[in-house]
Structures are given as structure tokens and as C-alpha cells.
Amino acid sequence: MRHLLDTVHLSREDAIRILDVAETMSDVSGREVKKLPALRGRTVVNLFFEDSTRTRISFEAAAKRLSADVINFSAKGSSVSKGESLKDTAQTLQAIGADAVVIRHPASGAAQRLARTDWIDAAIVNAGDGTHAHPTQALLDALTLRRELAARAGVEPTGRGLDGARVVIVGDVLHSRVARSDVWLMHTLGARVTLVAPPTLLPVGIETWPCDVEYDLDNALATGPDAVMMLRVQAERMHGAFFPSVAEYSRRWGLNEARLGLLTPEAIIMHPGPMNRGLEISAAAADSPRSRVLAQVANGVAVRMAVLYLVLSGAPSTEGA
């Protein structure tokens, strides 16, 4: 795997390989000495054009547990705000000798630009680009769900997909890179995904996506999903006439206590964080035993270790682009 840019072009084989390696990495995180020598001498740059402490420290922990040297490059603002251009930044990192660049950028396609141009030779890992893709988030979601399904079936998760699982993703799909990456990855792994949102927060053109679309959350929950993922509602959406009020959104698309009661006993709740308690998710749901929010965070480190290991170990495979 040369780069990890999105999940649309990630094969089932490669996705399962990442998840399987992540299971191994997960064991490392459980040890007293949480460190492997796998990437000793390799340099990983966390190139963050957007604030995201959670994602950055997750990648940083992942790289450090593999003994890589980590450089954090916080480049807030981009060529849009008359700062250094993305090309110049990339060439600077090339000159410094970066082996892998983990990039978070507000512009959709920024990671792909780095991978497709001759600006830099390093492996590119997309840590979220605009409203396009966030593949490591989708992979950690898949890892979390796969473990759950395996435990329920009393088998080992390794080597398996998400075949037959039903996942409901609720919220601002239009602006969500997480939703886009989840839909394609979970579909590739055999799950059936239903997106639930107000029609204003679903993109025109969604009819070709490999998932179902539903406006009514209660209808979606009544089908007995294995997992419900709540997406964060960004503050700026509240002023764009996407929905009449926070209260109405919360009533119709929030995971409140009443809706918790509609879930099957095994169903889990996921959220990519940070949560808006009381808006898209109630405290009761966030703190319930069904919640896997903290497991997601822990799995994020394992998945990112796996991705960094695979893009830097040069193992031949199809390109997860």
C-alpha cells in the first residue's frame, strides 16, 4: 500500500489486512511497554492545516509506538489565506526527508493532490480532507464493529469482514468526511449501511451511493441495526437554514432516551467525537453500556499504527488510493 487517501478505492483484501494488522498492534497497546521497533529511523510528519487535537495525538501515539520519529507541523491557514502554498510546504517536507506525511486539510482532495503530484515522494495518509474522506476514522469504526460482531459470534475477528452487519449512520452527511468514508468501507466489507438525515443534509447525487437513505430515525432504528453511529452537528450548520432549530433537530434526529429503548440488546452506539451532548446524542446514550466511543479512540491508535506500518514497510499490494 503506497498511500491511504480514501476508502472508495480500498479493496476488501487491503481493508481486512489493515484491520488484521491493527488487531496485532492493539495487543502492543495493551502491554506495559507499548513500543515496537518497526519504524525506527523513519520520519512521520503530521501536517495539520486544521485544528484537530484528537486525530493528531492519535497519529502521534501510533507513530511513536512504532518507534518512528514524529514531527508535528501545524500549518493553520493555507494558500487561501496567503500563507505558504501547499506545494511549497510539501517540497519543504520532501527536503527534510519525510517518509510519511499524515495530512489534515480543510480542502477536499488535498491529500490526493500531494499523492498525485511530483511535489513529494513520501507516503501520504489522509487524516481528513475537507468534506471528502477520513479513511482512518472509517477503519477504526470497522475495527470496533468487527470485534463486536466476532465476540457475539464467539469467534476471532481476524480475517473477517462485516458481512451481514447493519449500520445506521445519523446526521450531517452532506458535510461529513466520516460518513463518506464509512459508507464505502462498510459496503466493501459486506455491511448494509443506512444513512439517516434531514433531506437538507444529504448531498444531491447520493442516490448512487452503496447504501440506503432514510429521513426518519425511528424507522431506521426499528429495523434492528447492529450499530448506530451519530455524527457531530457542526455549530455553523445551525445558521445555514439546514434545519429550523437545534431543538427540532434534536427531537427528530437525536439519539435520546426514548430511542435508546428501540435498540436491540446487542446494538452498540458509536460517535467519531467530539460529541455535542444533548444535541445529536443524549447523555444517557453517550454514557450507556452500549457506547463504544472510548473503544473507538483506543482502536484509532491501533488502526493508525497499522496504516503507518503498511505504507512504510513497502509490502506490495494494490494501492489503497
Partner: peptide
């Protein structure tokens, strides 16, 4: 704005 913009996450121009 259409199938491609939805997938690419680029704001659509209807």
C-alpha cells in the same frame, strides 16, 4: 452539483 460532487465532497454548483 451531482453524483461526482457528492462523492468528492466538493460544494455543488447546481
Amino acid at each position: 452539483e451531482g453524483i461526482v460532487s457528492a462523492e468528492l465532497g466538493l460544494p455543488g454548483w447546481p
